[in-house]
């Protein structure tokens, strides 16, 4: 009964799902989705050669569950289990790293941490604090009606500032720190990459997806005046890395999204049919318990209702008689 773990059940669901859908923010700046959080997921799925469709969500810019991937009746939300990529990895659905020789190496982990903190912070800073807001508006708020878009934009910018710990007093200091870290991260990544096609051992990992998402956004969406973009452009190999993969993953794909790759290629061949649906018993056991509770509750409810009705009958039978008193002051006086 408990032989099938939740992860395996999810993986089976993934295998069975005829259509996988990535729901992300809208495309802009020549990117399939122009959101720095959605882009890595897109890249990850492309790298794993999973056929999928992309749906655009325009009405919920402040939701943290976007991007999400739908497969069958299951959904991998961005705000669960550490993000979509982590969700897919954890549930052994789609793990680029699993085949990887150095997947468990501390290098991969520390690089990932660096990309998802220092670089992500720098990007947030550029997008929400430094820029005039037009980029963010195009990506997130352009499909919302006037006051709503404005209010949400203002709120988000304020939240980012708070998150990055920027106040009026330390703004310059923080800026310097953020750019310094970003620069250091780029240096390290550039060194790491060298002239390889991927960051680690010439095969894709989730770090590649994360960084690629970041780099593509910086190079395509941010304006020429951007400091972050300037810093990244100093590293030719990083720029080439981004351009190379963009050509491979985004441009080639646009023609044959969802059909190009063979489903059997999805990196984690899982025993599918055997897994069956046996992950359901657990909920049923729970149901049984609540069934009793339900009858009890229903009885309690009926009891209460009958009590109430009894009181009402009592009141209306005994209190109904004197209702005429109330009419009293409605009367009309006629005097003269």
């Amino acid at each position: 009964m408990a032989s099938v773990t939740a992860a395996e059940a999810a993986a089976a669901e993934w295998e069975e799902a005829a259509r996988k859908v990535l729901v992300a923010r809208k495309p802009c700046f020549g990117l399939p989705t122009a959101c720095p959080t959605c882009l890595p997921v897109y890249v990850y799925l492309r790298m794993a050669q999973v056929p999928f469709d992309i749906d655009v969500d325009t009405s919920f810019p402040d939701a943290d569950h976007i991007p999400y991937v739908e497969f069958g009746d299951c959904v991998a939300f961005n705000n669960e289990k550490g993000g979509v990529i982590e969700y897919l990895k954890e549930d052994k659905i789609l793990n680029l790293n699993s085949k990887h020789p150095s997947a468990s190496s501390p290098d991969v982990l520390s690089t990932k941490a660096m990309v998802s903190t220092w670089l992500a912070d720098a990007l947030q800073y550029e997008l929400w604090v430094v820029s005039d807001g037009s980029i963010a508006h195009d990506i997130y708020f352009s499909d919302l009606s006037w006051p709503i878009g404005k209010i949400l934009h203002w709120k988000k910018a304020r939240d980012v500032k708070q998150l990055l710990g920027i106040t009026k007093l330390n703004a310059a200091e923080r800026e310097e720190e953020i750019y310094q870290r970003a620069s250091a991260a780029y240096d390290a990544l550039s060194l790491r990459l060298g002239d390889q096609t991927y960051l680690f051992d010439n095969s894709p990992t989730d770090v590649d997806a994360l960084f690629l998402g970041h780099a593509l956004f910086v190079l395509n969406a941010l304006p020429d005046t951007s400091v972050l973009r300037g810093t990244l452009q100093k590293h030719d190999n990083l720029v080439n890395f981004a351009e190379h993969h963009k050509a491979q993953l985004l441009e080639s794909s646009s023609s044959g999204l969802g059909s190009s790759s063979d489903p059997s290629m999805s990196s984690n061949p899982r025993k599918k049919a055997s897994a069956g649906r046996s992950y359901k018993p657990k909920p049923r056991a729970k149901k049984e318990r609540t069934e009793e509770e339900k009858t009890f509750r229903r009885r309690a409810k009926y009891f209460l209702a009958t009590q109430l009705v009894a009181v009402l009958v009592f009141l209306s039978l005994l209190g109904g008689v004197d209702s005429s008193e109330l009419e009293d002051d409605d009367g009309i006086d006629y005097e003269d």
Partner: peptide
């Protein structure tokens, strides 16, 4: 509704 294939997660969304 969304299916949450979980065992350990005993919250109501499991049904």
């Amino acid at each position: 509704r969304r299916l949450v294939p979980s065992e350990s997660d005993g919250d109501s969304s499991a049904t």
